[in-house]
Design a protein around this nucleic acid. Structure first.
Lengths: 141, 141
DNA sequence: ATATTTAATTAGTTTGTACTAACAAATCAA
DNA sequence: TTGATTTGTTAGTACAAACTAATTAAATAT
């Protein structure tokens, strides 16, 4: 029987390992976890974000984001369009290729969720989801 | 209301961020998360392990482990002693300094556990711990 | 005794991700 | 209009963390 802090440590480590492992295969082969996080961030924002917004969101400097996005553009995962009302701005868009990859990434977590589903009964699982939602909601505040 | 896979994604990301953030402060200032994982691994093993064992456990090559441990030795977090029955072997020990740091690291997770405790009632928390233990046990098999 | 294997190291390299400084171009404010 | 600010880029750098190949020394097997 693990304590809560042990559970937190073990579970987060395992999920991370799983993410890295799956990422370094198949469709993701040439993308790092960090790069995929850029794609995810773009997708989760409603409108195509300017580079600064992405830098802020991902907590990196603008040059860091610029360089990372350059790579992603060259490999065809994103495109940039210049804003018409402020021509300094470049909006970042996912290409179909980029969209697919970022959706595949969600699949990793869904895959991991299956382990939970296997380990628990339906009603236990529902309760777990409920409890964890409560925790997450509390963290969001 | 988040789905299970969203929960997994968000929670593991937050815990990781928390770990990195706390690690880059105070007593940890000059140690990376990876380096702390070496210290943790040494502590969690009963006897002082030879370098090869650590490399295997941490899933890196021996040269990688050697270099990492050299650094930790120079900074005074570990020591090495030559085995008497096989003089090729070097056993790795934590110094007091290294022990303290690795224990402090546990503190990070205990700190994170507090967020859970704040968000939930006592009986909810107990139930959550029970359910997550069931998941972890299933994963361990 | 000689060959093979094992433990650890050294050297050299690669990759990923970040930074600062300096700058151009566009916009905004005085 | 002129100066300050903002957006994004380029150039140069730094560092962690990993790898392979080659080497030393010790132990084991033939």
């Amino acid at each position: 029987m693990y304590t809560l802090s042990e559970i937190i440590e073990r579970l987060s480590k395992r999920i991370r390992d799983h993410e890295v492992k799956v990422t370094q295969k198949s469709a993701f082969s040439n993308l790092s976890v960090t790069q995929i996080h850029y794609l995810e961030a773009i997708r989760h924002l409603k409108a195509a974000p300017p580079i600064s917004d992405l830098a802020t969101l991902l907590k990196v400097t603008k040059p860091t984001a610029t360089v990372a996005l350059d790579k992603l553009e060259k490999s065809g995962y994103i495109t940039k369009t210049q804003s018409s009302d402020d021509r300094r701005k470049s909006y970042v868009h996912l290409t179909n290729k980029g969209l697919k990859i970022s959706e595949l990434h969600d699949e990793i977590h869904r895959g991991y969720a299956k382990y939970f589903e296997k380990a628990l009964e339906k009603n236990e699982l529902d309760h777990l989801v409920e409890l964890l939602n409560k925790v997450l909601t509390h963290l969001d505040e």
